[in-house]
Amino acid sequence: MTVSIDGGMTETVHGSRITWAMVDTWVVAKRHLLHLVHRPDELLGTLMIPVMAVAMFGFVFGEAFGVAMDVPGAEYREFLLPGLFALTMAFGIGNTTISVAEDVRGGVLDRMRSLPMSPVAVLAGRALADVILAVVELSILLALGTLFGWQAHLGLGGVIAALGLLVLLRMAFSWVGILLGLLVSGPEAAMKYFALVFPLAMVADTIVPTDLMPGWLALPAEWNPLSSTVIATRELFGNTAGPATTWVGEHALTMAVLWPVAIIAVCLPLAMARLRRLGR
């Protein structure tokens, strides 16, 4: 084993700070994507949730929910699919949290912190990987939805805008997951708290319209960030939703942009502060 010190110590790095932050973010994102290639079962596991949800809620509960909403089952599935797209974005939080907690425990995060790389890229790489993964998940869900008879009625522009909103939501949830991953005591704890995603994913206009919920539940459901995205995407897909009677419903498109931006604006700086504090 021979070791030399000819690694080429170039003092000056080319390009601006922002360019480097983007390059670093991509390198870290690639790491997470390579993980999925090495462990495809994890990706399959993530995809099982929406697939099962389509099957269970669409067909097992679908007819009954349809009756409650006074629409046929097929029309309920039309209502349901945009909800499930957003729900899948929410369930992604679990994987993000666990993966970040594993990196804290395993020391990879420490190694990255000791490198002359962009500090924000250490975390932003995970967010970018999540967004790329979200695009893959959504493509599969769109195909699956089409198979079940769901369709977008307002053309390609609406579909792209709706997908954009869903990806934006996932990016926001990714930063929530990153922050939680830095706060929990370890990956085991992250797994235990996973059930907390359920109220986030379901106390919203995802599976049951908020006006069928009891009043005390309808209010948080209405203000759940998921609801704005779901209502906005239903509008963009041209899927039946009934007239939006609530304030959030009337401003769904605006809120579907504002909510994720606000979440990122809060979680990103908190996560960065937490990352710095890991060393204390």
């Binding site: 390198v27 790491r31 390579l34 395993g106 020391g107 990879v108 420490d110 190694r111 990255m112």
Partner: peptide, 25 residues
């Protein structure tokens, strides 16, 4: 050493290439 680790899922080469990229190569 004990507090700076390598990525267990990636291969040895992928680890080296990733960290080299993060060292701005």
């Amino acid at each position: 050493g004990q507090y700076a680790a390598v990525d267990g899922v990636l291969s040895g080469r992928q680890n080296l290439e990733m960290f080299a990229r993060l060292y701005r190569m």
